[in-house]
Amino acid sequence: MLAWFLPALGFAVISGGLNVALKLAMPGIDWRQFVIWSGLAYVFTALALIIFGGWTLPLGAGVEWAILTGALSTGGAYTLFVALERGEATLVVPITAAYPVVSAVIAALFLTEVITPLRALGIAAVVMGAMIIGREKAAPS
C-alpha cells in the first residue's frame, strides 16, 4: 500500500505547499521569475534523470503531445501565479482543483472516453462547488 500511498499523499501535501509558497513569494517575485525558477528546477531534474537514470529525450511518437503538454503546463504556471496574486489561496485553489472536469470533457470528445452517470454527477458537483466558492466575499483589506 505504501508504494502508492506515500507518493499520492506527497502529491497532496506538496501541492498545498506550492500554493502557500507562491503566496509567500509575492509580491517579491512576479510570474516571470516563477516560470524561470520552475525551468531551473526542471533542468536539474532532467540532468539527474539523464546522468543517473540513463534516460534520453525521445524523438519518436508522442513527442508533439509532450511538447504541447509542456507549453500548457507553462501557461498553467502563469495563470496559477496570477490567480493567487489576486485572490486568497483558500478561494483560488478549490476552483483550480476543478481541472478534471475539462479533462473529462476533452477525453470524451477526442479520446472516446465515456462520461458515465457518476462522472456527470461529479462534474455537476464540481460546478456547484465552484459556484458556492465563487460567490464568497473577499476578506476585508
Partner: peptide, 20 residues
C-alpha cells in the same frame, strides 16, 4: 480578478492532463 485566471488555469491543465 482571481476567477478569470483560475478558469484559464483549469482549461490549460485540464487539456494538458489529457495530452500527457
Amino acid at each position: 480578478a482571481w476567477l478569470g485566471p483560475s478558469l484559464v488555469y483549469i482549461g490549460f491543465i485540464g487539456i494538458a492532463q489529457v495530452l500527457a
